[in-house]
Amino acid sequence: MKGPLAKTAILLVGMYVFLKFILPLFTAPLPASLIFLYLALTFASAMIFYTMSGGSLDEFMGPVGRFLTGSGQAGVAGTARVLVFVLFPLLVGWQTYTKLAPSDLPPAENRTIHPAPPGEFVGLANPYPRTPENIMMGKGLYAAFCSPCHGANFDGKGPAAVGFNPPPANFSDPGTIAQLQESYLFWRIKKGGVGLPVEAMPWKSAMPRWEVELPDEWIWKIIMGEYDGAGQSPRTWEEEE
C-alpha cells in the first residue's frame, strides 16, 4: 500500500475523519456540502500533483489500469472488477431515472424571513419614552391586537396561530426581534404582510397592514410592550457594549 493511489485514498479518508469528527470538537460542525467540497479539492489536488510528470502518472494510474484491464487478476480482484463493470452502468441508469422521474414534491421555497426594509423605515427612533405607563399601554394594545396570533406569552402560539404558513413570529426566540431594530418592527407592523418584498413571499403572510387601523403612536407603544414582554432588547448600532 505504498503507491500514490493508496496514498491519495488514505489522504481522503484522513481528511474526512478530520473534517467530520475531529474539527467539530473545536468548532461548529461543517455542513456536509462543505465537507464534500473540501474532499473534492483534495482529490483534485492529488490528481494535478500526480499528473505533473509521466512517471508519477504511471505510478498513480498503473493500479487503476491493471484493475480495469484485468491483467494478471484472479479471485477477489477479478470478481471486484466484474462487479464494478456491472454496477457502474446500473448506477448511471439509476441516476438517469431519478433525474427524469417526475417529482411528487412541490417547488422548494426559499423565503427570506427578515428582508431589508424600505429606506424610509431605516434608523427611525421610537419617539415615545420608555416609561412604565407607555410600556403598560403597549402591552394592553398587544393583548388586544397581536396576542391572538403571536400569543399572550409572546411565543407565536396564540389561539389563532394554528394553520398559518408561515407561522406568526415567536418574539421570545432570540432570532426574531432581538436581532432587529425598533424601526424594522415599525415597518413590519405598519405595512404588514402585504408590505414585504418579493423574496419574503408577501402573498403568503396573514400579518395585517395595521396602518389602516392603528395610529403610529399605538404601533410604537406596541413595540415597546413587545420587547418588554418578550424579555428582549432592540438591536442598536450606536450603543454596542
Binding site: 405595512k191 402585504v194 414585504l196 418584498p197 413571499m201 408577501p202 396573514a206
Partner: peptide, 13 residues
C-alpha cells in the same frame, strides 16, 4: 403571485 386574501394589493409586488 396573488395574495391569499382575495388577491389583495401588495405594496412591493
Amino acid at each position: 403571485m396573488a395574495h391569499f386574501a382575495h388577491g389583495q394589493e401588495m405594496l412591493q409586488v
